[in-house]
């Protein structure tokens, strides 16, 4: 074609650049489309549940999840938080929230404290049985709690720790993820620091408190977020070890929500259940969103 010929002779062809720009633009549109679809894929179930939690029970019973907004929102959340239920009359959303917080904080703090101390010993001390202790601790990375769940349960019950916060939290700490994490970090701390400290006459306690802990601040924060979320989200262990309603956590309460869905002796409290589901989800999600950079750092550093 003649037209094409004339154009092809002119060196920086405007048609080619527009075409390229167009192609680039189309690619960007596709990229955004994929990301938007991905974001919707993640959001969709939660948003629907949130919306449904503003309806009454019959709405869900009749037609499932709802698009839209109704007027039962406050009432449902108030009931989820403050209405005592269960058969001891001592359980409401608030008491479960309290237990969840105790589990989340207790686990995160306990784990960080214990594993920092252990990692400090392993990295900074020369002593007999060092290799042995290393292996004793790191073998625990091999077996998740789930595979030794029954005997763990027996041991904790046998110690009389069923339905106690100690029984709930301590067995979860019995793994070396935190120790491993701090070991890696301590090893990246410049050796000169220890030398300098020794020259200054600082002992191991002073070095730990004055130098190592301040240096580890970001790492502690990052690990704290990960461990808090991990502790908060525990399900199997709390389900087994807490049979006393006053000890239920929010995530443990999910089991009761689902039981009430299938309970045949009364109309199931669907939407209050959804409200409680949202309450269960919110705190860890907010923490992860707000402390995103720490959390991502902690997560991705931990495998190195």
């Amino acid at each position: 074609m003649a037209v094409t010929d004339t154009f092809s002779t002119s060196p920086p062809s405007p048609a080619v650049t527009t075409k390229k720009r167009f192609r680039l633009k189309r690619e960007t549109v596709v990229d955004h489309a994929i990301l938007i679809l991905g974001a919707l894929f993640m959001l969709f179930p939660v948003v629907l549940t949130l919306m449904t939690s503003s309806y009454d029970n019959l709405a869900f019973a009749r037609s499932g999840l709802q698009f839209g907004w109704s007027d039962q929102f406050l009432e449902n959340y108030e009931r989820a938080m403050f209405e005592t239920s269960g058969f001891t009359g001592q359980i409401d959303g608030l008491s479960m929230l309290k237990n969840s917080l105790i589990l989340g904080f207790g686990f995160a703090i306990g784990k960080i404290a214990i594993s920092m101390l252990a990692a400090y010993a392993i990295v900074y001390f020369r002593f007999r049985f060092a290799t042995l202790s290393f292996w004793i601790i790191f073998t625990t990375l091999l077996l998740p709690l789930e595979v030794r769940i029954l005997p763990s349960y027996e041991v904790v019950q046998g110690l009389g720790m069923g339905n106690t916060y100690g029984g709930l939290i301590i067995p979860l700490i019995a793994s070396a993820t935190g120790t491993f994490f701090f070991r890696q970090f301590f090893r990246s701390v410049p050796e000169e620091l220890v030398e300098a400290a020794r020259i200054d006459g600082a002992g191991p306690v002073k070095f730990f408190i004055d130098i190592l802990v301040p240096l580890s601040k970001t790492m502690i924060a990052a690990l704290f977020i990960i461990m808090f979320v991990y502790g908060w989200n525990q399900y199997l262990w709390p389900t087994l070890i807490t049979t006393d309603e006053g000890m239920f956590t929010l995530v443990r309460g999910i089991k009761n929500i689902i039981q009430s869905f299938t309970d045949s002796s009364s109309v199931p409290e669907f939407t209050v259940g959804f409200a409680l589901t949202m309450i269960t989800m919110l705190p860890p999600v907010l923490i992860v969103i707000f402390f995103q950079s720490w959390f991502v750092k902690g997560l991705t550093e931990s495998d190195k």
């Binding site: 058969f87 001891t88 019950q157 069923g162 049979t243 006393d244 309603e245 009761n256 039981q259």
Partner: peptide, 17 residues
């Protein structure tokens, strides 16, 4: 009286206790 969940859960809790 204390509610212990489903029949299966009540039995398991009873045995453990």
């Amino acid at each position: 009286p204390v509610f212990k969940g489903t029949y299966e859960e009540a039995l398991t809790a009873g045995i453990a206790s």
